[in-house]
Design a protein around this nucleic acid. Structure first.
Length: 606
DNA sequence: CCCCCCCC
């Protein structure tokens, strides 16, 4: 056996086969074998390779260098310099991961005939699948700020399918060596995805009993699916500026966990979190093979049919835009900013779109831009539907898209002259037709037996509001107005939601005596209408009585002898015996000057 | 580890 007089890179295989990098290693070929692959009519060679210290049998010459090999392959004992190579972890044996060395380019330094024998005493290298350092293991921890090309990263990625069919220069290599997003799961951690960033959130901070920090998240898309990736704290510093919407990245080494469907509309059972090991590298080659954001547009006239909280994609023209409005959130006291846009489309329908925060501040509605929104949320107000952007929404202004061009052309041609049917117009409780009845007639007719109660309206004068218990602390959750229990420790418990909150909202619930021409009647009135009666918000009333509990009397007295058209509901108690009429509920009040509600027209309808 | 997305 010859000594190593050929400068074999002893120990190189140990490094390479653990995912490390050795520059242009010199190796000896101890044997080669032609492989016929079913899918390719080209020949490939599997070789037994030695660095003088170790040997492996999982080395393969790629077909691009067949011309350097000749028809007989590389002669046994040849010493070669490997100029370009990649390793790839395959798992198609059922026995765990195996790393293969794929030689992309090499040159024979000394032909086998000249060497004539095995150099050194190489032992077979085992345990080649673990300690994965891929991708970009050549000193670039993240790819961020590095000069490494995307290609380099691709050439060091792992593969799940064990395919070893390559194109030259790795142009399509990366595709074959990356994993589809849909294949990601917590049960595999060796993967690289090549994905387009379709959305990036702002950086948000949080502070709660478990701690505080900052985070952001991106939505990733490839041809197989989509997934959300969130970065916390130091990951924000590391990656937030680097990652840009619409660009394609190689991403590996993130932590996978089941997605909480409650908080994400993305179609994936999992979501990912960046870790200290996470690698993200922009892909600048062949990135067009990764699909761009997909939309599932609904037309504006369809929005009224969606349930509240549905997430939709919509494209429309911003026909009008409100001024920036600033106000305080009732529940949190936080200052909020919004702009309301009238969005229209070719269905001749308009919907109110609300933008929030900096997006609202920065929005320029001049020239009626076309807006394309992914992930807007359907809301409801006063019986009409509206839409709103969330932090997870993605809004593009005048994007270069067919749907946007088409709408632009339509609007500039005829749309700008049209009248639109507004699905955000207030309707519902205040709009259904109700007969004019006096309190005496309601009583005499014994109304309230209908399943949902009987509705009527009266011209009523408020004679007295009871100031006792007219205001209460309610659950801060939207749509839940249940009175909360003050736990006297800064927390408030809602029995209905079975939750404790650090805050509450004030609600008014007034019991009042109302007179009409036939007599008088005690009625109840909810917060929204009491606010109109007394000209104060519940929050304002709450703050005032916190200062001076006695002031409730003077607040309620202001309502005395005010006159309104009151839409009321008569309903029977269903569980109390004997069966008796409940206190009527005033659902909505309107000033008597409201010309749209004339007794005569309503009587004719009924 | 967030998960808030608000208002009339």
């Amino acid at each position: 056996m010859a000594k190593n007089n050929y400068n074999l890179s002893e120990g190189a295989l140990q490094i390479i086969m653990k995912g490390g990098d050795v520059h242009q290693p010199v190796m000896q070929v101890l044997g080669s074998k032609k492989i016929n692959s079913g899918s390719s009519d080209k020949e490939r060679y599997r070789i037994l390779l030695s660095d003088g210290k170790n040997s492996i049998s999982f080395a393969m010459l790629t077909t691009q260098i067949n011309d350097k090999v000749g028809c007989g392959g590389i002669s046994t004992f040849s010493v070669i310099k490997i100029d370009r190579y990649i390793t790839s972890v395959i798992n198609n044996t059922g026995k765990g991961d195996t790393r293969v060395l794929l030689i992309l380019d090499m040159n024979v330094i000394v032909p086998g005939e000249e060497v004539g024998q095995k150099i050194g005493f190489p032992t077979v290298l085992t345990d080649t699948g673990s300690n994965d350092q891929t991708p970009a293991s050549n000193g670039n921890a993240s790819g961020y700020g590095s000069s490494t090309t995307a290609n380099t990263v691709a050439a060091k990625t792992s593969t799940a399918n064990g395919s070893v069919s390559f194109n030259i220069n790795g142009v399509n290599l990366s595709d074959q060596l990356t994993h589809p997003i849909s294949s990601l799961s917590p049960y595999h951690n060796k993967w690289v995805i090549k994905a387009r960033v379709t959305n990036k959130s702002a950086v948000r901070t949080w502070s709660n009993s478990r701690g505080e920090g900052k985070l952001f998240s991106v939505d990733l898309l490839d041809e197989s699916g989509e997934i959300r990736l969130t970065g916390f704290k130091e990951a924000v510093d590391k990656f937030y500026d680097y990652i840009q919407v619409d660009k394609v990245y190689y991403i590996s080494k993130c932590q996978l966990k089941p997605a909480n469907k409650q908080f994400s509309a993305l179609k994936n059972d999992y979501e990912m979190t960046m870790t200290l090991d996470t690698l993200i590298q922009e892909c600048t080659e062949d990135e067009k093979s990764v699909p761009t954001i997909k939309y599932d547009f609904v037309t504006i006239d369809q929005i009224q049919n969606f349930e509240v909280n549905t997430i939709i994609d919509v494209v429309g023209v911003a026909r009008t835009v409100s001024e920036l409005q600033t106000f305080q959130a009732r529940s949190t006291g936080k200052e909020l900013k919004k702009k309301e846009i009238m969005l229209v489309d070719h269905t001749k329908t308009s919907v109110a779109l609300t933008l929030w925060g900096t997006q609202a501040e920065n929005f320029d509605g001049s020239n009626c831009p076309v807006l394309v929104i992914k992930g807007a949320r359907v809301g409801e107000f006063g019986g009409g539907k509206n839409i709103s952007t969330l932090s997870s929404s993605n809004m593009k202004i005048n994007p270069e898209m067919t749907d946007a061009y088409r709408l632009r052309g339509w609007y500039d041609g005829e749309g700008n002259k049209l009248d639109y049917s507004n699905i955000s117009a207030k309707s519902g409780a205040g709009n259904f037709s109700t007969p004019w009845l006096s309190f005496k007639e309601v009583q005499d007719q014994g109304l309230g037996n209908a399943e949902k109660g009987d509705y009527y309206q009266v011209m009523g004068t408020i004679l007295l509001i009871r100031s006792e218990n007219a205001i209460y602390k309610a659950c801060p959750t939207e749509e839940c107005n249940k009175k909360v229990i003050d736990l006297e420790n800064g927390m408030y418990r809602c029995e209905k939601c079975n939750r404790e909150f650090p805050n509450f909202k004030y609600r008014l619930l007034a019991s009042m005596n109302v007179g009409d021409w036939s007599g008088n009647q005690w009625v109840s009135m909810f917060s929204s209408e009491v606010e109109k009666v007394i000209g104060m918000t519940s929050q304002e009333v709450g703050e005032q009585i916190e200062q001076n509990p006695e002031s409730m009397v003077s607040i309620t007295e202001k309502a005395n002898f005010k006159q309104f058209i009151m839409k009321c509901r008569a309903k029977m108690e269903t569980y109390n015996t004997p069966r008796q009429a409940k206190i009527p509920m005033v659902l909505m009040i309107n000033p008597i000057s409201n010309a749209s509600v004339s007794p005569k027209s309503n009587m004719l309808e009924d």
